Computed example of a mutant assay.
Amino acid sequence: MEKLLSCAFNMGTGRVELRYSDGSMISIHCTSVEDELANSRFQRPERDWLIYNDPLSYAELILNGDPKEYLQTVTEPLPFDFDG
């Protein structure tokens, strides 16, 4: 792979697509990735935000990072306040 030319979320295919100067491409099927991760109501908005607003960070997280650890770090369920 050469220099990264573009990285974008393709709404038509539901994939984050990375295109390189040598003509190669990486396509991340977001639905398949999401099916493998825990689907809590607290984590899904964080993943969706990354996909739509920062697809490069999403791609780097999926390809090089630990998405489960990341999601546990950035999201935590808030306890219900029954006294309020």
Rank of each mutant, 00 (worst) to 15 (best):
I51A: 03
Q43T: 06
C30Y: 01
Y58M: 08
T13P: 08
R47V: 01
V74R: 13
A59T: 02
T13H: 11
Y70C: 11
S24V: 01
S57R: 13
Y70R: 13
I51E: 03
D35K: 14
G12K: 15
Y70A: 12
E2T: 15
N53L: 03
F82S: 10
S6N: 13
V33W: 00
L61A: 03
A38G: 06
G12C: 06
E69Y: 07
D81H: 09
L71E: 08
S27H: 02
G84H: 10
P77N: 07
L71C: 09
S57L: 04
L37W: 08
D22K: 12
R47W: 02
L78E: 15
E60W: 03
E60P: 02
L50T: 07
S32L: 12
P45S: 06
K3H: 11
E76G: 14
P45W: 03
L5W: 03
K3I: 01
R47C: 02
P77V: 09
D48Y: 02
D54F: 00
E76R: 15
D35L: 10
V33Y: 05
T75R: 08
L4G: 01
D35F: 03
V74E: 10
D22L: 12
Q72W: 08
M1H: 10
L50V: 01
C7D: 00
N39C: 10
C30H: 00
E34D: 15
E69F: 07
D22S: 13
K68F: 06
D83Y: 02
R44W: 00
T31F: 06
R41G: 12
T13V: 08
N64V: 02
E69V: 03
A8N: 13
H29S: 09
G12R: 14
I26K: 12
Y52P: 00
F42K: 07
P55F: 04
L37K: 07
S24H: 12
D48I: 06
Y20C: 10
I28Y: 01
L71N: 11
L4Q: 12
L4H: 03
S40C: 07
S21Y: 09
P79Q: 12
L56D: 03
L37Y: 01
M11E: 15
D35P: 00
T31P: 01
E69M: 12
P55Q: 04
S40V: 11
N64E: 10
E17P: 05
P45C: 05
R15V: 05
Q72M: 13
F9Y: 15
S32M: 11
L4M: 14
G23A: 05
L18Y: 03
L78V: 12
N64C: 14
S24D: 12
E60F: 06
N39W: 06
F9Q: 09
T73N: 11
D83S: 14
V74P: 10
E76S: 14
K68C: 04
C7I: 07
Q72V: 04
E2V: 11
S40Q: 08
S21A: 15
L5S: 04
P45N: 02
G14V: 06
N53I: 04
E60V: 00
S40R: 13
W49N: 10
G14L: 09
N10H: 14
K68V: 01
R41M: 09
K68Q: 15
G14C: 08
Y70F: 15
E46Y: 01
P79C: 04
Y58N: 04
G84C: 05
G12E: 14
S21W: 06
N53G: 06
Y70W: 15
D54G: 04
S27W: 04
L18P: 05
S21G: 08
R19K: 13
M11L: 13
D54K: 11
M11I: 07
L5Y: 01
L4D: 11
